[in-house]
Design a binder for these strands. Structure first.
Lengths: 333, 333
DNA sequence: CCAAATCTTCGAAGCGCTTCGACAGCGGAT
DNA sequence: ATCCGCTGTCGAAGCGCTTCGAAGATTTGG
């Protein structure tokens, strides 16, 4: 293994000089810098992460806790994960992955061990059991999602209430009178996952305000569940012509069911999805959708975490505005 | 922050004694152990990871490099990732995530910095540019996937050649004479990703051996591509009645296309998928499939990595045998 | 009852790095 | 010529832990 001392010897300077060349925390003459850089390159030196963490008291690692059992749509999770890793590397940080089932204990362990300098949590429940731990440790933390009580916490999320409202508005604008929200699975509501409830509230309020009759049903991702949900909605209110789908996995079955029922999309019925663009684009017809800005959320979370590490004040909720992309699954009636 | 020294003071012993209680590397009297454990619990002590890494020369971290751009089906990746993390925790290891686009440099950086004790790589290409780096560093490494030259490397993967063969066998057993393999996207073959090529070879060989006429076409995950691929196959050889689908994303469009064409599944045509059980189960009808043992691969990779760290010899390829689950999308004709 | 063997525990060194205080050398102002 | 304030560099301390050798304490066998 090549150490700082080896580099110092090769460059004919002291160890501290090499350290300062690396960190730039003191001015070092041009000529010395070059000699040191040469030695580093020649020897193939990489600083020892543990030694660094010990001496400097920060690990250059961000911990990211991802949901294990997935109510959330997996591709979205993965997109956030890669965004976080990519953004972290730009700040010269690595990313440690934890699974949600490590819970608060896992966070405490990481925070106390100094393995990571900051925590990023996904899949936040309204009354998330990990939040008390966040308040107990002093490690910077960012939530991707919104708990019910976010005082003192730094959060980032899509503005799901505005998303629900935007969907209601779009359908109202197109002249639909009876609309339905085909939501996430029962399980998601039972766990009080914030995004689903906020979407629902935003949708219902705006629908009411625009004089629409709205209906909401949870839906699993299976063909059977999608069929059952649609049947029940149409049985209860056959005049329903506007559909908002939140559970991405239900989109393909739903589209083929509507086709089977002879309800043409978009000529007779409009379908609006809340999903990543990729999903909306590979469905036929391409779906009008509000996209889930996974990339932005991931990057934003890292940015907020780094700001906290830099001592900045970041407490509060960053709500990303929904962007409605009009494609070929919605039309005026 | 609570340190070893604090614990030692509280327990009235020396620091080294506390260390030995924690590691169990020397015998410590029952009574002292208890006193130390009490102090640890009282103070809420967690060892500092960096200090540990520095002194002991291992980080208790496994690095996992996941593909960034996804030719592989995302849910499978995620399942492997969670399996790796979960298994790693059972060995008291944490997992550092790297993205594939960090490439060999990323691996070198991690290996040299001592940030991780072992490397686990996913999405292996036949002639993967990261492999020379693996041979250069001395850090233990495990590949999930098979490169063309695996001498000196430790690999684990589903036996895709046997998988392709099993699919051909199943269709032959059912009496199909003309069969098609609807493969991964062009891009996957262009990059010489091992699993796709091995599946194809296994399928073609066995099909030939069983006297079947076989055809192979790559396929993207979009509706359009699935439609185009199917049209071309049926145009070229309308007598085709047995289909093997490797690209999971193509399954839903393919099933609805066959339905539209009036080709009943399984009465007239058989469809066999290579996909996670979850996907096979939520399609209608449920698909006969060879499952991708993501969990086993992830756990296995960790087991192999830990074995290497323990100084055991693990070089060689672990090929997991395919398991064909017969469901409702294949039938005798 | 003593020496040898064994069990417990301790002190000190050192892992590779950062960082603080100090100091030499320098030019400019006096 | 003298003092001052720079700039550039160095040495040493110390981060929290593991581990080695050794020293007391205790037990065992003769």
């Amino acid at each position: 293994m090549v150490t700082l001392a080896d580099v110092a010897r090769a460059a004919g300077v002291s160890a501290s000089t090499v350290s300062y060349v690396l960190s730039g925390k003191r001015s070092i003459s041009e000529i010395t810098q070059e000699r040191v850089q040469r030695a580093i390159a020649d020897l193939g030196y990489t600083p020892h992460a543990g030694a660094r963490a010990l001496a400097s008291n920060h690990a250059n690692v961000l911990a990211l806790m991802v949901p294990l059992r997935s109510d959330m749509y997996v591709p979205v999770i993965m997109e956030i994960v890669t965004a976080v890793i990519t953004a972290a590397r730009e700040f010269d940080q690595d990313v440690l992955m934890l699974t949600g089932n490590e819970g608060g204990d896992g966070l405490r362990r990481i925070a106390r061990s100094g393995r990571a300098d900051a925590l990023i949590l996904m899949d936040i429940e309204l009354d998330d059991p990990r939040i008390p731990v966040l308040r107990e440790v002093t490690t910077p933390a960012v939530l991707i999602g919104l708990p019910s009580d976010s005082t003192g916490l730094t959060c980032i999320d899509l503005d799901f209430a505005a998303t629900g409202a935007a969907c209601a508005d779009h359908l109202a604008d197109l002249g639909h009178r009876d609309v339905a929200l085909i939501g996430e699975s029962q399980e998601v509501y039972r766990r009080h996952t914030g995004f689903a409830e906020r979407t629902l509230a935003g949708f219902q309020e705006r629908a009411a305000a625009r004089g629409l009759r709205s209906i909401h049903r949870p839906c699993e991702g299976t063909f059977e569940s999608a069929a059952g949900t649609l049947t029940r909605i149409l049985g209860e209110r056959p005049s329903t012509t506007g559909f908002v789908v939140q559970n991405e996995a239900a989109i393909p079955p739903l589209m083929s069911l509507l086709r089977q029922l002879g309800r043409l999309v978009p000529e007779e019925n409009s379908v609006l999805a809340i999903c990543p663009d990729q999903v909306a684009l590979q469905t036929s017809p391409q779906l009008t959708s509000v996209s889930i800005p996974a990339e932005e959320m991931g990057r934003g979370a890292v940015r907020l975490a780094m700001a906290q590490l830099a001592g900045q004040q970041t407490v509060g909720s960053t709500l990303l505005p929904p962007k409605l992309a009009i494609r070929h699954s919605t039309a005026a009636r």
